[in-house]
Design a protein around this nucleic acid. Structure first.
Lengths: 187, 187
DNA sequence: GTCTATAGACCGATAGAC
DNA sequence: GTCTATCGGTCTATAGAC
């Protein structure tokens, strides 16, 4: 178990969840505090009482999604052998991507957040752990490219126009099947 | 050859290129007309003389990147047999992704643009053609997921923090190698 | 914890001179 | 084709009452 983000108060959680929904629809830069306030039927001032700047809300929203990923790692890590851990991890990452669709992808695709996370301790910590669970001791730049491709493939495919009409079950099954193949695992 | 976008005047091209650079850095919603104007040392009014709204600039920028992809398809299509076409296509898509990095990915990751492109004729046309060249006659939802994953993997991996320090040559080679494996092609 | 009201900057967009 | 000047509106953020 690694250090965890403290749970949000109910009021803050409402703000962060509203922010995530709006980010997914309008992008981070296209979402204003007024929109967030309207979405939960309070005034801007009430939002500012919880978070002092918009940046703090963006950070809290990004951390909230990061915490979901960290929780997935924790659960998978308890699966036993490295092989079973990796299998469990793939299943749960696919589930997370399908469930959260645009929220994960939009946040982690936003250039401002990408740049911020690149030097953000907690993010790097989670990514290192994820990388180790996926790739074992296969380190080095080539393993990094492979891990980046796999994560981008799962996260990005779910919001690709090519699959916009697809039912969730097929999506899940196919993502999982191809992810396994990508890692040279048996079907 | 399919219908092409008419070439931009030099002035419009300057605006669109500035917009693309700024979108990659600040996101679409985080980029203002003032920023675009400043970036090419003119006033907002001069920009408005070329494009009547910000949306028109966003569209022109997205179409510009789409045109690059279409040009890649045209070049690859001339390679001969379906196998050689696919090989050429992979090489050039990887090159495009590495060269354009955040421009492609940010634009195609923006939720507003994703939603717009999903019903945009030219985009669907290019994607259909790309899909056919990649997957041959392998149609259906499962092939769609595979194509979406491959495109997302290539486009998304290049801007992933995991590979932020990596040199371009290794990046290109490894992306290409893994893309081939993903399609069951020989190394 | 939520409100009303407001400050000051910046937004997209337009008018009209050169 | 670019400029200055300006419009009305929205933005982030704050002050102060309840």
């Amino acid at each position: 178990m690694v250090a965890t983000t403290p749970a949000l108060s109910p009021v803050k959680a409402r703000i962060v969840n509203a922010a995530l929904e709006l980010f997914a629809e309008h992008g981070v830069g296209g979402t204003s505090l007024q929109m967030i306030a309207d979405h939960i039927n309070v005034t801007k001032a009430a939002v500012y009482h919880q978070y002092r700047t918009k940046d703090e809300i963006v950070l809290a929203a990004a951390e909230s999604e990061l915490a979901r990923l960290a929780a997935v790692l924790d659960t998978a890590a308890a699966a036993g052998s490295p092989d079973r851990v990796r299998e469990e991890l793939l299943i749960r990452i696919v589930d997370l991507a399908v469930e959260r669709r645009r929220m994960e992808s939009t946040l982690l695709g936003d250039p401002v957040i990408v740049r911020f996370f690149a030097n953000y301790q907690r993010y790097r910590q989670v990514m290192r752990r994820l990388h180790r669970m996926l790739m074992g001791d296969d380190a080095g730049p080539r393993a990094n490219v492979r891990a980046a491709m796999l994560l981008a493939a799962i996260g990005g495919a779910v919001m690709h126009p090519l699959v916009s009409g697809l039912d969730e079950a097929t999506m899940r099954a196919e993502l999982l099947r191809l992810a396994r193949r990508f890692l040279d695992l048996p079907d």
